[in-house]
Structure formats: structure tokens, C-alpha cells
């Protein structure tokens, strides 16, 4: 009896809405979906899709003048801007620079983050809460502020480590890239540590019991069980770090007032900014499109290569 009444109740709601129109719940559900999706959909279209389309359109234009002093006019130029992009040594120099930066900085940062997360998850430490807070705190410091702070710390006259900074010039052409890497690492290690640590905490304790019965020590448990289980989290942090590396702007731009070794095209985004300030919008748009594509492909390939689905 109960079952039947339950079965009849459901179609009743259905027939209520079918009086309004269509299949059970059809219209009201569809209307609800529209209400839920539309606000984000509209904003996404306006501030993501249209700008990308506009950037591509702008990058296909070129400026033409009637004679040397004639009025400038934007005309369709096909792929001519992209030819300029590929001939632009400064731009590719900046791409190469951030790639070198990423190849070194991302693994170092993630290694440290993994190490700290494993230590926090091990029985070796006391005062875990303090360490967690202290290591995470720099993430609250915006890139610009972090760069200003470290800029002062690097400079020989103000630094509290003047013995070091007067013998090693951290703001010189040779070292400034790694000084930036240090700033980025300082800000983001704790954040990545927390992501990995959170996924360590989500591992059920029972998994370790069998290993412990077999006499495995902490080190063996960490390498044999924990690291494989948090690999999806590490991949996620790696993808976001790769995206972040190609986007470097705030730190080098801010450090320019401390170091003359940072040129106006030091990173790809600095090149975009500098080119747009000329203003040469079409070339800057072409830079942006190439950079977005490169970022997209790089993180996509990385996700595929690791053969795990960090995104469900």
C-alpha cells in the first residue's frame, strides 16, 4: 500500500506540471535550469568568450596609412600580425625565459610542498597547527606586495642580510630571474602544501594498517602509499603552477623599480603590456592569443601525459 501511494504521488506532481504543459516536470525543470545557468552563462559569454573572439579579430587587423603622414586606418591583414609574432625575437626570448623559470621553479616548489605536507601528516612533528599557519600565511600576500618586500630585502642598502646582499647581487641580470623564482616560491609553497596535505587527510587510516602490520616504516608508507594516492592533487597543483608561470607579470613588473636588469619584454605578459602601451593593439592581441593557446595546450598536454584525470 505504502509503495503504491508513493508511486502515485510522484506522477501527481508530474500531472500538475503536465497540466501546465509537456512531460512530467518538463517545463518547470527546464525553466529552473535556465534561471540557474543564465546569470553565469551571460557573464561568461560577455567577459570570456567575446573578449577571446575580439582578440582573435583584432589580431587579424593591421594599420594602413595613406602615405607617411596620412590618417591611420585599420584594415584586414590576415595572418600578418602572426608572422610578426613569430619573427619577434624579444617575445620568444621572454617565452624561453619563463619556460626555463618553470622547469626549475615548479618542481622545486612542488617538491617542498610535498615534503612539508608529508611531514605534517607524519607522527614526527609537534606544533603542526603552528607550522601549517606559518607556511600558509605568505599566500595572503599579493604578488605586488611580495615583490616590493623582497625587492627591499634584496637591495644591498636596506637588507637585513647586508653581508650576503653586498657580496651577491640578487638584482643583477644573471640572478634576477631566480630572485623572482624565490618570491613566487615563497608565496605559493604553503598554498600547494595545503592542497596536498588536505588530500593526505582524506585518505582513510585503515589503508595504513596493513602496511604497518607488514612492518613498513614511515618512509616506506610515504613513498609507497601516500605519494601515489595524492598524485591527482599534485597534478592539479602542477597545472595551476604551469598556468601561473606563463602569466608572470606582477612580480617582474614591480621589481623593475629595483633592478634595471628586467627589460620591458622580460616575460610574455610584460611584452603584451608594453606593446599595448605603444599602442599597437593588433600585435598585442596576437601575442595574447598565442600566449593563451600555448598555456592551454601546455596544461592540456600535461594533463594527458600524466594520464590521470585531475578534473572530474
Amino acid at each position: 500500500m505504502t509503495t503504491t501511494s508513493l508511486e502515485t504521488t510522484a506522477p501527481t506532481t508530474g500531472s500538475l506540471s503536465s497540466k501546465r504543459r509537456g512531460r512530467p516536470g518538463g517545463l518547470s525543470l527546464r525553466r529552473a535550469v535556465v534561471v540557474f545557468v543564465a546569470p553565469f552563462g551571460v557573464l561568461y559569454a560577455l567577459f570570456y568568450v567575446i573578449p577571446i573572439a575580439f582578440a582573435i579579430y583584432q589580431s587579424l587587423l593591421t594599420v594602413k596609412r595613406e602615405g607617411t603622414f596620412g590618417a591611420a586606418q585599420q584594415v584586414f591583414g590576415g595572418l600578418s600580425q602572426y608572422i610578426l609574432v613569430f619573427q619577434d625575437g624579444a617575445f620568444w626570448g621572454s617565452v624561453g625565459r619563463v619556460l626555463v623559470f618553470g622547469i626549475v621553479q615548479v618542481p622545486v616548489m612542488l617538491f617542498l610542498a610535498l615534503l612539508f605536507a608529508l611531514l605534517l601528516d607524519s607522527p614526527l612533528l609537534r606544533g603542526k597547527k603552528f607550522f601549517r599557519l606559518a607556511f600558509f600565511a605568505p599566500y595572503a600576500v599579493p604578488g605586488v606586495i611580495a615583490a616590493i618586500m623582497w625587492g627591499f630585502l634584496y637591495s644591498p642598502s636596506l637588507s637585513p642580510f647586508s653581508a650576503l646582499t653586498s657580496s651577491v647581487n640578487f638584482l643583477s641580470a644573471d640572478l634576477v630571474l631566480w630572485s623572482i623564482a624565490n618570491i613566487v616560491t615563497w608565496v605559493y609553497v604553503g598554498y600547494n602544501m595545503l592542497i596536498i596535505y588536505s588530500s593526505l587527510l582524506a585518505i582513510p587510516q585503515e589503508i595504513y594498517e596493513a602496511a604497518k602490520l607488514d612492518g613498513a616504516n614511515n618512509w616506506q608508507i610515504a613513498v609507497g602509499i601516500k605519494i601515489p594516492l595524492v598524485t591527482p592533487a599534485i597534478i592539479l597543483t602542477a597545472v595551476f603552477s604551469i598556468i601561473g608561470t606563463l602569466q608572470l607579470l606582477a612580480e617582474p613588473q614591480t621589481l623593475r623599480s629595483f633592478s634595471s636588469a628586467i627589460s620591458s619584454t622580460y616575460t610574455p605578459n610584460l611584452a603584451v603590456y608594453t606593446t599595448a602601451s605603444i599602442p599597437n593593439y593588433s600585435l598585442a592581441a596576437a601575442f595574447s592569443v598565442v600566449l593563451a593557446l600555448a598555456t592551454f595546450i601546455l596544461s592540456f598536454v600535461f594533463l594527458k601525459l600524466t594520464q590521470r584525470r585531475a578534473f572530474a
Binding site: L29, R30, V33, V37, G41, Y44, F47, Y48, I50, P51, I52, F54, A55, Q58, V239, I243, L246, Q247, L249, N269, V272, A276, Y281, A284, A285, S288, V289, L291, A292, T295, F296, S299, F300, F311
Partner: peptide, 29 residues
């Protein structure tokens, strides 16, 4: 609903599109 997976994939691609690559086109718009 129809187009659900398409919508989700479009949004996910947005995660991989760097926000800074949008700054200049947003300025132009």
C-alpha cells in the same frame, strides 16, 4: 538537460585560459 556536458566542458576550458590573456581583449572591448 541537453547540452550539459558541452556547457561543462566549455566552462572547464575557461579554467585553463589564463585570466591575464583576457586583460588586453577586455580593455579593447
Amino acid at each position: 538537460f541537453r547540452g550539459r556536458e558541452v556547457l561543462f566542458n566549455v566552462v572547464l576550458s575557461g579554467v585553463l585560459v589564463p585570466a591575464t590573456a583576457l586583460a588586453l581583449p577586455l580593455f579593447l572591448i
